[in-house]
């Protein structure tokens, strides 16, 4: 009897230096959520009871799970997902766990990295903010988690290319600050 095994988005995605690290996120549960017409308020109320706020454009909710505004009336949840069974008739949900790959960037040198990768102003990815942008032609999210930590979400199929871009830029920033 067969048993399928799960493969990660990337066999290895790690860059560790003092003041700058890039690490592949483990596979996290992700879900897109869109309240049906007229159901936004009940959905918001239900989630707020669980301390989950549906953020507006450019904002991000950081806990208890990450919530990003995907589009008009649509959000992406990541991490410890809430129980949405009570909202079954009120929301459209789609599993997005395998759609994205994620990287955590940590360290005081990360802003120098991000200004080489992200064309948006740094204020758009400050703590509690999220911006959907392009990194080396890849559509990505950049999320400010605070305390010199950011998260980047990109398309899973391009995990290799995205990590390559992140690692090259990290190496460049390290080299420039050490010369």
């Amino acid at each position: 009897m067969f048993k399928l095994t799960a493969a990660p988005a990337l066999s290895s995605g790690d860059y560790q230096r003092p003041d700058l690290s890039v690490q592949l996120l483990p596979n996290l549960a992700r879900l897109s959520l869109a309240p049906l017409h007229g159901e936004l308020e009940p959905v918001q109320n239900y989630l707020e009871k669980l301390t989950i706020k549906l953020p507006g454009p450019t904002a991000a909710t950081l806990s208890p799970c990450l919530v990003l505004p995907l589009g008009q009336g649509q959000w992406l949840l990541q991490g410890e997902l809430p129980d949405l069974a009570p909202l079954k008739e009120k929301v459209a949900t789609t599993d997005q766990s395998d759609a994205w790959c994620g990287f955590t960037l940590k360290g005081i040198k990360v802003p120098a990295m991000l200004e080489r990768l992200v064309m948006n102003p740094p204020s758009t990815y400050a703590e509690g903010c999220a911006v959907r942008t392009q990194i080396e032609h890849l559509g990505c999210w950049v999320v400010g988690l605070g305390s010199c930590e950011w998260q980047i979400l990109g398309p899973r199929s391009s995990a290799d290319s995205l990590f390559h871009a992140l690692k090259q830029t990290a190496q460049a920033v390290d080299a420039l600050t050490d010369n």
Binding site: D95, D98, A99, R156, S157
Partner: peptide
């Protein structure tokens, strides 16, 4: 129209 779309090309 009460409809919501999302790409799942990457997911499956």
């Amino acid at each position: 129209l009460d409809v919501h779309l999302i790409s799942t090309t990457e997911s499956w």
